[in-house]
Write a protein that binds this DNA or RNA. Sequence first.
DNA 1: TTGTAGGCGTTATCAT
DNA 2: ATGATAACGCCTACAA
Lengths: 329, 329
Amino acid sequence: MVSIKDVARHAGVAISTVSKVLNNYPNVSEETKIKVNKAVDELNFVPNSVAAALSSKKAGRVALFVNLNVQTQAIDEIDMQYIQGAITKAMELNLDVITLFFSMFKDRTSEELTRYLQSQSITGIIIYGLSKEDKILHKLIDEQKFKCVVVDAPIVNENTSSIWIDNRKAQYDVAKKTVEENNCRRILYIQGKKNGYVTEERLQGMEDLVKEMGLTMLVRKGEFSELQARNITMRYGKNKDVVICASDLMAIGAMKALTEMDIFRPVCGFDGIVLMGYVGKQMNTVRQDFAGISAKAMEELHYLMDGAPGRNVTMPYTLVRMKYMDIIC
Amino acid sequence: MVSIKDVARHAGVAISTVSKVLNNYPNVSEETKIKVNKAVDELNFVPNSVAAALSSKKAGRVALFVNLNVQTQAIDEIDMQYIQGAITKAMELNLDVITLFFSMFKDRTSEELTRYLQSQSITGIIIYGLSKEDKILHKLIDEQKFKCVVVDAPIVNENTSSIWIDNRKAQYDVAKKTVEENNCRRILYIQGKKNGYVTEERLQGMEDLVKEMGLTMLVRKGEFSELQARNITMRYGKNKDVVICASDLMAIGAMKALTEMDIFRPVCGFDGIVLMGYVGKQMNTVRQDFAGISAKAMEELHYLMDGAPGRNVTMPYTLVRMKYMDIIC
DNA sequence: TTGTAGGCGTTATCAT
DNA sequence: ATGATAACGCCTACAA
């Protein structure tokens, strides 16, 4: 393996000089820069990121925390895109990435988690799908020992940025579209996880709409569960004009229930997962670019690791109507 | 951060002694073992894996190569389970993992890839979904610079193990079941990727069956594409008694086509993805435990990194019939 | 059985 | 502007 030492020898300079060139330090003459870069090319030198991480705390190693839903593999699509977006962007930015799952630290303390991350020389983390109940991760964020980007939760401090779409407006938009298209007045709204951050935002969006249009709304907690959405729809769907769900999976559950009850009610979802194309009926939904959001999160983390302060980032979304022939390939 | 030096001081021994205890070297007295372990506990010491990787080539860092299908997000489920199974097992085994995608090295040479891996101190890799066309990865395997486990491809050498299910028998089994249940004689078989390893195995299984039962079979290449399976079924399905597909996604495409053609033909798939439960009709399919296979692959890699020779590993499968109420939750 | 010391490939602090 | 040199935390001959 060719090391910085070989490059130094080949270029006829000191190791430290090579390091300076590699890391864009000032105070290096144009001339030696060229010499060094030439040597790097000729020897096909690739810096050892492990050594860099060991030697410097600022050499970036990043951990992804994914809240994998083991029961509902139908939405793995979202996590996969998160992972793919983050890793691809990290490669561009020359950051090392390790992927972790919430479930791996279920019974650990935040101290143990901190030690684990430090043992991996990790300085930045991205958290996907945090809920208020994830005490350990909240503590980790509060302690600010790591730079952090939280996807889909509004947490910001000096070392923590938040990134998500405008869930309130998105829910409002997709619901309004569905309601207007079908001339509805009585809404059944099935919301998400009790302590989820997006859950509250989306509910607000619904309340905005109800107020603005003078509608009535029954709200039920679906916990992002297809089965619960199904049951709720069976129970309350008949006397409503429309079923609006805070996730696609719940929308699918609701739609299937309605089909079995042999009544028609418009249904709309949220997220734009591919599965929506398979259920037969077309539904309005909000499409999020999960890979793009995740790539942006990685960029944001990069800023943070460079010393930038935490902040809020809002990403765009689109309204779509998903049908089979659009998603097949 | 508490280091091995702190532990040594706390236990009143030399650093190297601590290291020996940590790595289960022989020639350490029971007494000092206890002393050291006590110090480790009291200080909450967690070894820095980055430093270990730097100093020792055998300290295991592992790369996962995932062949992400960007077009068909419907099967992200499989890759997600691969990743989850591998990473979870790696944590148990104290191996570091980084995740990479085929697409990241599309335009790179195998030398570049090798250098990249070396720059990450990676000594073992797991490859998911290799096809014969992936020249770069084949070269990587041939060069044997890394320990390697290949999932779903029959490649074995001194440093490479292969792991998959018995695709030939599985295809035979699921097809036979479907054929017998419906008393079919004329088969339309839609196979997978032209140069895929499983493709050939599965075709053999079909040929075994055709020969044994004296059936007729038309074989068409579906490239694991739902759309192609759909088109093939539209074209050839009418004159056949059954459509047997080498993947679930193709089975879904075939089934949807038949529904649109308003004719009934039994269809069977392969893999057991959750999506199968959403398409309305029940279908026979082969269920693979992707997470389990991947965990096993990680174990196998661990053996290899410990000096064991490469070999073939065969995993079990089951035949299932997937319907909506089974997969919903 | 235990300890000493050199090395893994970088980065960063000093002199020069 | 450049070059020694000491970390970074751990592993591993080799010596004791």
